[in-house]
Design a protein around this nucleic acid. Structure first.
Lengths: 337, 337
DNA sequence: GTGAAAGCGCTAACAA
DNA sequence: TTGTTAGCGCTTTCAC
C-alpha cells in the first residue's frame, strides 16, 4: 500500500505538503511542487485510505440508505421492482454527489441506528418505515434525514420528505377514464394510508367534478394479504363485472388482478378496463400492457439526494414538500366506452 | 460520541481492558470486571467506530459487490429483476457472515479497483464483466474474488466462480417439452456465450436422446438489441408458427416474445407453447404465467458468499466449480400435444 | 510555502 | 489480570 508518507519521501517533501496538493489547497504549495507531486502520485498509483480519512475528519462521506418493510410480502425489499429501481437510482445519484452509499435492508431500527453511528453516516435516506420507527430514528440520529413517501404529521429541522404528486396522479387517471367514457369505475386499494389516501382523494375529485354521485361507493378496499385478496375478488366478481373500468392503486395489484380476473373468464380490456399506478416494469411485461400513472423513480431518487445534499451543505429546506410530478401513460388495458 | 476511553475512565480501568471485554478475549479479564464493563458499555450506549477499527486492523470487514453491464439494455443494473434479487440476497448473506457490503454498480473496472483499495475490501463479488475486465481485476486485486455466472477459461488461486447447472436446466426443459408431446421446438437465444451456450448444449442433448435430427436447425439466434429482435420475430413469423413450442434462453426474452406474438395474433399456449429460463418475477406476472426453469437466486447468493467466506478463512476452494441446481416449474404457457 | 507534531479511536505487542 | 505504549494513514494547527 502506498501512503502519503511514501509520496512525500519520494518527492523529498513533508506529508503535509502532499496532503495539500491532494486537496488542491490553492496557494499553499508552489506550482512546481504541485506538478511534481501530482506526477508522483500518479506514478505510484496512490489511493487514499478512506478509513484513515474518516478517522481524521469528522465526516465519513457515507450516506446510509435504509429500507423498511418490503412493499409487498416479498421476501426481501429488493424483490420489489419499485424499491430495486429506486435504490439503483439512489446509488447513482449519491455517487454523483461525491458520497458513498451504504445499504441497510431488512434491519430493525435499532440496528440501523447502531450502524449509522458505527459508520458515522453523514446523512440518511429512509423509506418504508412506520411513524413510530421514524420517530425513533429522528430522535436518535441528529444528522440530516430524507424520507421517501412517508407522510407523517409533523415536520422537523434536518428532516425532509420527498414524495410524488399522488393526488394529481389520482386526479389525472380519474379524468383519463372519464374521457374514455367510463362512468362505472371502481377505485381499488389495500389500504388508506399516505400515498394511497392521496390517490383516492385525487381520483375522488375527478369523479366529483364529473358530477358523479355516491362517490364513496366507488372505493373498494381489499385485504393486504395475497390469498384473502384473491378470495375477495372472487366473492365480488359480480360487482367487478358490473363496472366498465377498475383503477388499482398500484400496478402490482392491477397486474395480479388482471391475471386473476382473466382466469375467471373476464376479457380485459374488452369487458373491463384496468388501470394502475406507479409504472413499474411489470406494467410493460404483463398482458395487456397496463395503462398506468407513471412516476419517475429516477427523478425521485435524484430529488431525495438533492435535498440531502442541500441539508449537508447547511441549507435550510423548509417550504413545501418536494414532489415529483406524474403523468398517465396509455397502453392497452383501457379501452374507450 | 462515546469512546473506549470514556468507558475505561468510568470503569476505572485501561482502554486495553475494555477492548478485551469487547472482543471477548477469554481469560484476559476477570469475570467481575467483564460484567461491570459490559454494563457500562450498555449504559453509555457505546458503539465502536468502524473507521478506527478499520485503520487499526489490516482487515476492513467490507466485501465489495461489483456489477458490470446490465443484463439487458436497461438503464441501471438494478432494473433487472434477476440482478436486483441477487443483490438483495447477497446483502443478506454478507451480513450473516458478519461483513458489510459495499455496492458498486455501473462503474469502470478502474473505478472498481480504486475503490476496492480505498476501502480496503477484504474480498469482492463480481458479475457481469467481460473476460478482459475480469483479468484486469484479478491482476490488480489480490484478495479473494468470487464471480457469478462468469465462465472463463482458466482458474486462479483466490478466485472462484459460482454458477447454475445451466446444462442440466437446458436438458430438463428439453425433456419436459418432449414429454408434453412437442417435437417441433425452437431454442431461441440472443447469444452463444457462457450460460446460454450451456443451456443450448443441455437442450441439444435432450433432443438427441429423443432421436431428433437436424438439431442445429432447432436453434434460432436473434439480435441482442430490442428493436431488431422484434423485427426478426416478424420476419420469422412463418417459421415460428410452424413450431409447437419455443424455448427461450431467458424469461426476459420469453415474456417479450409472448406479448409480441400475441400482438401478431398467435394464441399462446393454444397454438404455440412457450418456455423460459430463470424464473424471474415476470414469469409470474406475465400472461400466461410462464413455464420455466427455476434457478434459486437465494441459494446462488448464499453459495457465493459461502465460497468467499471460505477463502477469507484461508481455505482452498479448488475442486469442481460450485453450482446451484435447477428445476422446471410448470405454469400455463406450455400445453400438451 | 513548507514542515513538525498532535490527534482521530482502536488494537496488539509487550511490560508489569 | 491489567496497563503502557506505539502505531494504523490522514488532516490540521501552528511555528518557521
Amino acid at each position: 500500500m502506498v501512503r502519503i508518507k511514501d509520496i512525500a519521501e519520494r518527492a523529498g517533501v513533508s506529508a503535509t505538503t502532499v496532503s495539500n496538493v491532494i486537496h488542491h489547497k490553492a496557494g499553499k504549495v508552489s506550482p512546481e511542487l504541485v506538478e511534481k507531486i501530482e506526477r508522483i502520485i500518479r506514478e505510484m498509483n496512490y489511493v487514499p485510505s478512506l478509513s484513515a480519512r474518516m478517522l481524521a475528519n469528522e465526516s465519513s462521506g457515507i450516506l446510509g440508505v435504509a429500507v423498511g418493510y418490503p412493499e409487498r410480502s416479498l421476501h426481501l425489499p429488493l424483490e420489489d421492482p419499485f424499491v430495486a429501481s429506486l435504490i439503483g437510482h439512489l446509488e447513482h445519484a449519491i455517487r454523483e454527489l461525491g458520497y458513498y452509499m451504504m445499504l441497510l435492508t431488512k434491519r430493525s431500527m435499532e440496528e440501523i441506528l447502531q450502524e449509522s453511528r458505527a459508520w458515522n453516516f453523514d446523512g440518511l435516506i429512509a423509506f418504508g418505515f412506520s411513524q413510530e420507527e421514524f420517530e425513533a430514528l429522528r430522535e436518535a440520529f441528529d444528522k440530516p434525514i430524507v424520507t421517501i413517501d412517508s407522510y407523517f404529521d409533523r415536520r422537523y429541522p434536518r428532516v425532509c420528505n420527498v414524495g410524488t404528486d399522488d393526488f394529481d396522479g389520482g386526479y389525472q387517471i380519474g379524468r383519463f377514464l372519464l374521457n374514455r367514457g367510463h362512468r362505472d369505475i371502481l377505485f381499488v386499494a389495500d389500504n388508506d394510508l399516505g400515498v394511497d389516501h392521496l390517490r383516492w382523494e385525487g381520483f375522488r375529485k375527478a369523479m366529483a367534478e364529473a358530477g358523479l354521485e355516491h362517490l364513496d361507493d366507488m372505493r373498494l378496499m381489499v385485504p393486504w394479504d395475497y390469498e384473502p385478496r384473491l378470495r375477495r375478488y372472487d366473492e365480488l366478481l359480480g360487482l367487478l363485472r358490473r363496472q366498465t373500468a377498475l383503477f388499482f392503486c398500484s400496478d402490482y395489484n392491477a397486474v395480479e388482478a388482471m391475471n386473476h380476473l382473466r382466469r375467471r373468464g373476464v376479457d380485459i380490456p374488452g369487458e373491463l378496463s384496468v388501470a394502475g399506478f406507479d409504472d413499474i416494469v411489470y406494467a410493460r411485461t404483463c398482458w395487456p400492457p397496463l395503462t398506468t400513472v407513471h412516476q419517475p423513480v429516477d427523478k425521485k431518487a435524484a430529488l431525495a439526494v438533492e435535498m440531502l445534499g442541500r441539508m449537508l451543505r447547511g441549507e435550510r429546506v423548509d417550504g413545501p414538500e418536494p414532489k415529483v410530478s406524474v403523468h398517465v401513460v396509455e397502453r392497452q388495458s383501457v379501452c374507450a366506452r
